[in-house]
Amino acid sequence: MKLNWFTRKGIIYWPASVIGWVILVIAAAFAIYTFIDIDSRSHSVSDTLTNFVFNLLLIGLVYTIIAYFTEAGKKVD
């Protein structure tokens, strides 16, 4: 069974269904929440960005793994 939640356009995975959009919104909301949380505990801009970039890479990695395994497959005729 192939799940068709995402489609790949170049190196970006775009949502192709409602579930894909929900996953994208959850990932973006979690990234914003993480940024606000890190910013509230940081003492400088560089401290905030250094800690946020690592978390953003992890969020992007999880999103990409989910999208990779649920992308719409190409038909082989």
Rank of each mutant, 00 (worst) to 15 (best):
A16R: 08
G60C: 12
D77F: 00
S17K: 00
A31M: 12
T7F: 00
T34N: 08
R8N: 09
R8E: 14
G73H: 11
F30Y: 13
L49Q: 03
T7W: 00
I66F: 05
K2P: 13
T7Y: 01
R8K: 15
D39T: 06
S46C: 03
I65M: 11
N51V: 03
N55W: 15
D77N: 04
N4V: 07
G60N: 13
I38E: 05
T50E: 06
I32A: 12
A29E: 07
L58A: 13
K9F: 10
S46A: 08
R41Q: 15
S42I: 06
T64E: 07
F6E: 01
N51H: 14
T34C: 10
F52Q: 06
W21I: 10
K74C: 02
I65Q: 01
T48C: 07
R41N: 11
L49S: 02
F54A: 12
A29V: 14
T48N: 03
M1L: 12
S46V: 10
G20C: 09
L24I: 12
T50D: 07
I59V: 15
P15K: 00
A16N: 12
K74W: 07
F69M: 06
N55K: 12
A29Q: 01
F52N: 05
N55A: 14
A67D: 01
T50I: 08
M1T: 09
Y68H: 15
L3I: 07
K74E: 12
A16H: 06
E71H: 14
D77S: 04
L49M: 12
G20P: 05
P15D: 07
I26E: 06
Y68A: 15
L24W: 10
T7A: 02
K9Q: 10
K75Y: 11
F52C: 02
G20Y: 04
P15F: 01
V25S: 11
I12L: 07
L49C: 03
W14L: 15
D77R: 00
L58F: 12
I12R: 07
K74R: 15
W21V: 04
I23H: 00
V25A: 12
L61E: 03
D47H: 09
V18W: 08
V22I: 15
I59C: 05
I59G: 04
G73P: 09
K2D: 14
D37T: 15
I36T: 08
K75D: 10
I59W: 02
D47P: 01
G60L: 12
Y13W: 13
N4L: 04
G73F: 05
K75H: 09
N55Y: 15
S17G: 02
V53L: 13
L57P: 00
V53Q: 11
K75F: 09
F6T: 03
L61P: 03
V76E: 10
K9D: 14
A72Q: 11
I36D: 08
F54I: 14
K74S: 11
W5M: 05
V18S: 10
A16T: 08
L24A: 14
L58C: 13
I12Q: 06
V22E: 01
T64D: 09
L61N: 03
I32G: 05
L3A: 08
G60I: 06
R41L: 13
I59D: 00
N51A: 11
I38F: 09
Y68F: 15
I32C: 07
L56N: 04
V45H: 03
A27C: 11
L57H: 01
